[in-house]
């Protein structure tokens, strides 16, 4: 069986106008995969969503909304395993606080919960220059 082996490495300015670009890359990856037996349109939405959420999070919480900073995103697929890493260069945030769903009428705090629900593994760790949000999904 021929398997997909994809590696995408993107750096974009720390601005929300690029969310759409990053989300669409996720959607297109889902539609292009050679071997995927699940609901492809659902996967396309899910990858759009987790990339949008992770990047928005890096912009708003980790890079402190500074438009001169960058967000660095790596997407790779090896042996039917999708790995997304979103690097930020800021102070970071309290990741664990947002893993559980909050009150339905909260205006903020659903992003991490959504990523956690969709992906198989998720972690947030410190790097030398900031933090990395890592998510894994078995395809």
């Amino acid at each position: 069986m021929i398997t997909d082996r994809i590696a995408v490495d993107i750096k974009v300015p720390n601005q929300t106008r690029y969310l759409c670009l990053i989300g669409h890359i996720g959607e297109n990856i889902a539609r292009t995969l050679r071997n995927y037996s699940g609901d492809r349109e659902k996967l396309a939405y899910d990858l759009n969503l987790v990339l949008t959420e992770a990047m928005a999070n890096a912009i708003q919480h980790a890079n402190e909304g500074d438009p001169d900073k960058e967000v660095h995103i790596e997407i790779s697929i090896i042996s039917q395993r999708l790995i997304i890493r979103v690097f930020d260069f800021g102070e970071g945030f309290d990741f664990k606080q947002y893993v559980r769903p909050g009150h339905p009428l909260d205006e903020h705090g659903r992003g991490i919960y959504l990523m956690h629900s969709i992906m198989d593994e998720i972690s947030y760790q410190q790097t030398e220059s900031g933090h990395v949000l890592k998510m894994i999904k078995d395809l």
Partner: peptide, 16 residues
């Protein structure tokens, strides 16, 4: 076609 957590948050804010 697409709503993220921030879009949901804006609608919740309007609802409240």
């Amino acid at each position: 076609r697409f709503v993220d957590s921030s879009g949901l948050g804006a609608l919740v804010s309007g609802f409240k």
